[in-house]
Design a protein around this nucleic acid. Structure first.
Length: 191
DNA sequence: CGGCTGATCGTG
DNA sequence: ACGATCAGCCGA
């Protein structure tokens, strides 16, 4: 069966709503190592210029953060801690620099599990963290600034239906420097 | 399971 | 210098 692909309008909202909406959706990446499909199970919202946790807080616009200013549905992949990548999906209009960090995914089928196991070099904890997810789904900086609503090899599909009561909200991880914004319940997990 | 630590480098 | 992190190790 052919899964329905997510179109532009899905991404044309704010990061908080998009972060919830992305739970249960399937991220698809066609790579040289094979096709990998992951069901998204944890996300974090980064709300942009007014959010002290966001790379674009205060309107900070640099070569690194540039994709966050692009149209909703653009990939934003950045390098962190000298060894890992983090994958985000931008939200909203051009020049509204919001994004959703994709923190976790489950392999959506057995072929995807096999690819993830090979890329990760282990059979557990395949994509239960933003860095691990990028390794398991072969997301690199070459996948930065790609339009996920248009690209052939990198996109999202409808996935599974998610009841509101299966979504847990919690504090975002790793942004202790963000003062009061560190306590916002802007992390969403599918239980 | 929770806490600690070293690895490692592009960006500002 | 400093991170939107991870793995391995420790103790409980």
């Amino acid at each position: 069966m052919k899964e329905k692909r997510l179109e532009r309008d899905f991404f044309m909202t704010d990061a908080l709503r998009l972060a919830r909406a992305l739970l249960g959706k399937i991220l698809v990446h066609e790579t040289p190592c094979g096709r990998v499909r992951g069901i998204i199970t944890e996300t974090e919202a980064y709300m942009g210029v007014d959010d002290k946790g966001s790379h674009t807080y205060g309107g900070r616009r640099t070569k690194r953060t540039e994709p966050m200013f692009h149209i909703g549905g653009t990939s934003y992949v950045y390098f962190i801690y000298g060894m890992y990548n983090c994958f985000n999906v931008t939200a909203g209009e051009v020049d509204e620099p919001m994004a959703v960090l994709i923190r976790m995914a489950e392999p959506a089928d057995e072929e995807s599990r096999a690819v993830m196991e090979r890329l990760r070099g282990r059979s557990d904890h395949l994509a239960d963290g933003p860095g691990k997810l990028c390794i398991a789904m072969h997301i690199t900086r070459e996948d930065n600034d790609v339009d996920l609503a248009e690209a052939e090899h990198f996109y999202l599909t409808e996935g599974i239906a998610v009841e509101e009561n299966r979504i847990r909200a919690g504090k975002r991880i790793g942004i202790d420097y963000a003062q009061e914004a560190a306590d916002y319940l802007w992390r969403f997990t599918l239980t």
